[in-house]
Write a protein that binds this DNA or RNA. Structure first.
Length: 344
DNA sequence: CCGATTTGACCCGC
DNA sequence: GCGGGTCAAATCGG
């Protein structure tokens, strides 16, 4: 998307990126719970690398060289105060209680490609249970846009929403827009590393024989974020052909989550069973603390946080703090989110 | 029977 | 008025 930087920069970025990945791997190798100091150091290291990368790229993003050859781009999506915030039940709540909420819901878009050759395509499954509540033909778009919300919306009040739209030119590419974060404690199948062979399903049962098997995140766009991260998100579902699309990479889940760290917003359970046996270590944690993949989301909070960040010079304060009132914003940056029941 | 999807109507911001 | 987003009744499917 973005034009390429000059070669030196690219090389530099490449190196930094590699360094970052190495650090992440190092983190994995270290017993995460044993050394908080080590963890902190790593976090800081990552932060430095991250900042360097950001500086190189400016605020906007740039291509991160992919070991897999896949190009992932992260871009900032201009905030659109958006149309349509009609009254849905939950919307009404939000609107009545705090009208700003809706507009500032964290939002990011991912370009996801269904792997060709698998013969599978269709609804993307990121590990969460989505319930379709609408579909709409979009002007200028060849394919309709599907609207999904978290299945547990009613039960747990989870406000996560997802919009899926197939790309005009390349039907194998879906543009998946997420809005809001999952506040629900998702089903067990969400816990990656636990039972890799049971990660999709929940939705797409019926008439869509097409079960999503492999996809790649090509692009991640975020909105309301001033902290960007290049995302190297390439992953594949092992359902049929784990290596269908790409070779396994140990950074498969290095930076998948656009925003959620602990809330588990979009943490696809892409643990290739052939890739990782790290049962003892939840990738969530890795993700979460991949550290700076996290971003602030709510624009309002954003300001506050960025201010705080620059002021305190805290390394990883660009955590997603869209916790609203549910959560104090002052938790420690190296809070042990690996606590399983942390949110329940 | 229950939960998910479909689909036309409705709402709302621009 | 238009278009995007959501609702909700009807329908589907296990």
């Amino acid at each position: 998307m973005e034009k390429a930087l000059n070669w030196d920069q690219k090389t530099l970025i490449n190196e930094l990126t590699q360094g970052r990945e190495l650090v992440k791997q190092l983190r994995i190798h270290l017993n995460p719970s044993s050394s908080s100091t080590g963890e902190l150091l790593i976090t800081k290291l990552l932060s430095s690398l991250h900042k360097s990368l950001l500086m190189l790229n400016g605020v906007k993003s740039e291509v991160e060289p992919q070991p897999t050859g896949l190009t992932i781009v992260t871009t900032t999506e201009s905030p659109r105060s958006g149309s349509g915030s009609p009254r849905s039940d939950y919307d009404s709540d939000l609107i009545r209680d705090k009208s700003k909420k809706r507009k500032t819901l964290p939002r990011w878009t991912e370009q996801v490609r269904v792997c060709p050759g698998t013969g599978h395509e269709g609804p993307l499954d990121d590990g969460y249970s989505w319930r379709k509540y609408g579909q709409k033909d979009i002007l200028g778009a060849k394919y309709p846009r599907g609207y999904y919300r978290c299945t547990h919306r009613n039960v747990q009040g989870c406000l996560a929403i997802r919009q899926v739209q197939r790309c005009d030119e390349d039907p194998s590419i879906f543009s998946v827009t997420y809005r809001g974060r999952h506040t629900c404690t998702q089903a067990p199948h969400l816990i990656p590393g636990q039972s890799p062979n049971r990660q999709n399903q929940d939705q797409k049962k019926k008439k869509s024989p097409e079960t999503f098997i492999n996809f790649q995140t090509l692009e991640v766009k975020t909105e309301d974020l001033d902290t960007q991260e290049f995302r190297s998100s390439s992953f594949s579902f092992p359902s049929t052909s784990p290596m269908g699309c790409l070779e396994k990479e140990n950074n498969i889940f290095s930076s998948l989550t656009p925003d959620n760290h602990f809330m588990g917003n979009f943490s696809p359970p892409f643990i290739s069973p052939t890739t990782s046996e790290s049962n003892y270590l939840s990738p969530y944690r890795i993700n979460s603390f991949g550290g700076q993949n996290l971003q602030t989301s709510e624009s309002d909070l954003n300001e506050i946080i960025s201010a705080a960040t620059s002021a305190s010079n805290s390394p990883i304060l660009d955590l997603d703090l869209d916790l609203d009132l549910d959560f104090p914003v002052d938790f420690d940056s190296h809070f042990p989110f690996d606590t399983p029941g942390f949110f329940s």
